[in-house]
Simulated assay, not measured.
Amino acid sequence: MSEHTVRSPMPGVFYRCPAPGRPPFAEIGATVTADQTIGIIEVMKQFAEVKAGAPGRVTAFIAENDALLGPGDPVATIEAG
């Protein structure tokens, strides 16, 4: 199995949940599809979904919730299957 690194599509603040108090889009250990949203990036009140990019199991979130990210910064890792 190979490891896929999910990267930020743009600069902004990374959120694992769709809104405060809501459950995260995905947890560590969750099985995801390539087009599944695992987080969002917010910049100037505009939001962009962060997609898994590969089917498999989420093994880690590298970016913390509320982290300021640059384009291409690592967000999570997925064990692609």
Rank of each mutant, 00 (worst) to 15 (best):
residue 36 Q to L: 13
residue 27 E to T: 10
residue 40 I to G: 03
residue 51 K to P: 03
residue 44 M to I: 01
residue 36 Q to M: 15
residue 57 R to E: 15
residue 22 R to L: 12
residue 35 D to S: 14
residue 14 F to S: 10
residue 6 V to A: 06
residue 12 G to K: 08
residue 26 A to G: 13
residue 22 R to N: 07
residue 27 E to G: 13
residue 43 V to G: 08
residue 46 Q to R: 10
residue 16 R to L: 09
residue 16 R to K: 14
residue 41 I to G: 09
residue 15 Y to M: 08
residue 54 A to F: 05
residue 33 T to C: 03
residue 57 R to C: 14
residue 32 V to I: 11
residue 20 P to V: 09
residue 18 P to N: 09
residue 28 I to G: 01
residue 46 Q to A: 11
residue 34 A to G: 04
residue 19 A to Q: 08
residue 5 T to F: 05
residue 16 R to T: 00
residue 20 P to Q: 10
residue 49 E to R: 11
residue 18 P to M: 09
residue 12 G to T: 07
residue 13 V to G: 01
residue 7 R to I: 09
residue 21 G to S: 10
residue 20 P to L: 14
residue 44 M to P: 05
residue 40 I to D: 01
residue 48 A to Q: 12
residue 5 T to V: 11
residue 18 P to F: 06
residue 44 M to R: 08
residue 49 E to T: 07
residue 28 I to E: 13
residue 14 F to V: 09
residue 34 A to T: 00
residue 13 V to A: 10
residue 12 G to F: 02
residue 7 R to Y: 08
residue 53 G to P: 12
residue 17 C to L: 06
residue 10 M to W: 10
residue 43 V to N: 14
residue 20 P to C: 10
residue 55 P to V: 06
residue 20 P to H: 11
residue 10 M to L: 15
residue 15 Y to R: 15
residue 5 T to K: 06
residue 24 P to E: 05
residue 49 E to S: 14
residue 3 E to M: 11
residue 41 I to T: 12
residue 38 I to C: 06
residue 57 R to N: 13
residue 50 V to Y: 02
residue 32 V to T: 03
residue 25 F to M: 07
residue 29 G to K: 09
residue 49 E to F: 00
residue 53 G to F: 03
residue 11 P to F: 07
residue 17 C to M: 13
residue 3 E to Q: 11
residue 53 G to N: 03
residue 55 P to H: 01
residue 54 A to S: 07
residue 8 S to M: 02
residue 37 T to I: 15
residue 3 E to W: 04
residue 28 I to N: 00
residue 55 P to Y: 04
residue 8 S to V: 05
residue 41 I to H: 06
residue 55 P to M: 08
residue 42 E to A: 10
residue 36 Q to I: 13
residue 57 R to D: 12
residue 50 V to N: 00
residue 33 T to H: 01
residue 52 A to V: 02
residue 21 G to Y: 02
residue 21 G to P: 03
residue 34 A to N: 00
residue 56 G to M: 05
residue 27 E to C: 13
residue 5 T to L: 02
residue 49 E to A: 15
residue 47 F to H: 13
residue 21 G to T: 10
residue 36 Q to A: 15
residue 47 F to N: 12
residue 17 C to Y: 04
residue 55 P to G: 04
residue 52 A to K: 03
residue 23 P to G: 11
residue 27 E to F: 01
residue 13 V to I: 15
residue 49 E to H: 12
residue 26 A to W: 01
residue 9 P to I: 08
residue 42 E to R: 05
residue 46 Q to E: 12
residue 7 R to Q: 06
residue 6 V to H: 02
residue 6 V to G: 01
residue 34 A to F: 02
residue 45 K to P: 02
